[in-house]
Computed example of a mutant assay.
Amino acid sequence: MTPDELADLAHLRRARDMIDRDYALPLDVPTIAAKALMSPAHFSRKFKEAYGETPYSYLMTRRIERAAALLRSGMSVTDACMSVGATSLGSFSSRFTEIMGETPSSYGARKHTAIEAMPPCFAKGTTRPARVSRT
Rank of each mutant, 00 (worst) to 15 (best):
A33G: 05
A33M: 00
A33D: 04
A34H: 13
A34E: 15
A34V: 00
A34S: 15
A34G: 15
K35C: 14
K35E: 15
L37A: 13
L37E: 13
L37W: 09
M38D: 07
M38P: 07
M38G: 07
S39R: 12
S39M: 10
P40I: 04
H42L: 12
H42T: 15
S44E: 05
S44P: 03
R45E: 12
K46C: 11
K48I: 08
K48A: 14
K48P: 07
E49I: 05
A50P: 07
Y51W: 07
Y51G: 09
Y51H: 06
G52Q: 01
G52K: 03
G52H: 03
E53D: 09
E53P: 10
T54P: 07
T54L: 11
P55H: 03
P55R: 01
P55S: 03
Y56M: 13
S57T: 11
Y58V: 05
Y58Q: 04
Y58L: 06
M60H: 13
M60I: 13
R62N: 11
R63G: 09
R63P: 08
E65Y: 15
R66C: 13
R66V: 14
A67C: 01
A68W: 01
L70G: 02
L71M: 04
L71A: 05
R72G: 03
R72E: 02
G74K: 01
G74L: 01
M75T: 11
M75F: 05
S76H: 00
V77H: 00
V77I: 02
V77K: 00
T78Q: 04
D79P: 02
A80Q: 00
A80V: 02
C81M: 00
V84G: 05
V84E: 02
V84Q: 02
G85F: 00
T87A: 07
T87M: 05
L89F: 05
L89C: 03
G90L: 07
S91T: 09
S91K: 06
S93T: 03
S94Q: 10
R95G: 10
F96W: 03
F96K: 02
F96T: 00
E98S: 09
I99R: 11
I99V: 15
M100L: 11
M100F: 11
E102H: 10
E102R: 14
E102D: 13
T103C: 06
T103G: 15
P104K: 05
S105Q: 12
S106T: 15
S106L: 07
Y107H: 14
Y107G: 12
Y107L: 05
Y107I: 06
G108S: 10
G108C: 09
G108Y: 07
G108R: 08
K111M: 13
T113A: 15
T113K: 10
T113D: 15
I115V: 15
E116I: 09
E116N: 13
A117R: 12
A117E: 15
A117G: 11
A117P: 07
